[in-house]
């Protein structure tokens, strides 16, 4: 709310300097204006109401599971529909590991794209590449899922995973990390698909904030004899750090909730393995797969809603952090 107010204030500045006309128009209120105000206020509050309603409903729906399993629900590895024993730890683990890995894969590439587009690319290239990156965001997630299962997974199983396994076979920790049968599907593949999916969000944010760096700072640095890398390292990056981290968090938020593509390629096994090539599941994939067969009033349905609540809380924390980082920087 404060942000909105300050934004309004800054916008009011130039308006005021142009003369009193805009101001007077705003003050003169007739019936139409008031109706319009009412409608837009309702639209704004609707979002708040919806969000609150969803979180309350998820909690109420998940309550029987929380009551039955207590805090144990958070760290139980059981997911047994036959004996009605449910726990969240495997899907929470899968969700967090795939999302973080996706960030690890996506951020360097996104940085490369953003830096290339703002500093190196000739004008002619900037627009087409920029648009291509944004189009990546428009590809439906089921397409990514199918492509992942039918193209990427066989490719990984044949050409990527075996060499990595051969190479790490005798290295103590790495052989655990890349061990197990190479099916092509699993945590690693899911993270890779997620990385492609969140790449446009992170790259676009980075490009935008890199462009905000005042040219005079960079030119001064170049004038002092700094190399390109030194300019990025010492001028661009410190200037944009908070916004870059905010953009990454935005991508992370998206990765956490992605359902369809992940469901196709993660293998959907209820197990935690030290290996990144092993299969697993995520909160969103479990809900998508199990929901149609969950009977009303069953503990399973309640556990799925409880999982939804946990995902909501995780996403909320991530997005709140990103908002905090992306807040308008004071003094600029």
């Amino acid at each position: 709310m404060q942000q909105a107010a300050s934004a309004a204030a800054t916008m009011g500045g130039p308006l005021g300097s142009h003369g009193g006309r805009a101001r007077t128009a705003r003050r003169s209120s007739n019936l139409g204006d008031r109706i319009f105000e009412g409608i837009v206020t309702a639209a704004g509050l609707l979002v708040l109401g919806l969000l609150g309603g969803i979180i309350v409903l998820l909690f109420i729906g998940g309550w029987p599971a929380f009551r039955e399993f207590g805090f144990g629900f958070l760290w139980s590895a059981e997911w047994d529909s036959v004996r009605e024993q449910f726990g969240a730890v495997i899907s929470v683990y899968g969700t967090i590991v795939t999302s973080i890995l996706a960030i690890v894969f996506a951020v360097p590439v996104a940085f490369g794209i953003a830096y290339y587009l703002t500093e190196i690319a000739p004008e002619v290239i900037r627009r087409p590449v920029g648009i291509a990156i944004e189009l990546l965001a428009a590809v439906p997630s089921i397409i990514y899922g199918m492509w992942g299962l039918f193209v990427l997974a066989p490719f990984l199983a044949q050409y990527v995973q075996p060499p990595i396994q051969d190479w790490t076979m005798d290295i103590p920790i790495l052989n655990e990390l890349f061990g197990g049968p190479a099916f092509g599907i699993g945590i690693f593949t899911a993270a890779l698909i997620l990385a492609i999916m969140i790449l446009p969000f992170i790259a676009a944010t980075m490009r935008d904030v890199f462009m905000q760096v005042p040219a005079i700072y960079k030119e001064s640095a170049y004038g002092l004899g700094a190399t390109r890398w030194e300019v990025v390292r010492n001028v661009v990056f410190p200037y944009t750090r908070a916004s870059v981290v905010g953009g990454i968090m935005l991508g992370l938020g998206r990765a956490l909730g992605e359902t369809m593509a992940v469901t196709f390629v993660i293998g959907n096994a209820n197990a935690i393995s030290p290996s990144l090539f092993a299969t697993g599941n995520t909160i969103a994939s479990v809900i998508a797969l199990e929901f149609p067969e969950a009977l009303q009033g069953s503990l399973k349905l309640s556990s799925l809603l409880a999982l939804g609540f946990i995902l909501f809380v995780i996403s909320f924390i991530v997005l709140a952090t990103s908002r905090y980082m992306l807040r308008p920087r004071l003094g600029n």
Binding site: E78, W79, D80, S81, V82, L149, F150, A153, P154, A157, F183, G184, I185, G186, T263, F264, G267, N268, A269, N270, T279, N281, L289, E290, E293
Partner: peptide, 23 residues
């Protein structure tokens, strides 16, 4: 849906058939 002790899961008949065909 049951707690399988081994293997990997595909979504629907198509998912199972897809994984079998390529593994």
């Amino acid at each position: 849906s049951v707690p399988w002790k081994a293997g990997t899961g595909g979504r629907g008949n198509a998912g199972v058939a897809g994984i079998v065909r390529q593994t």
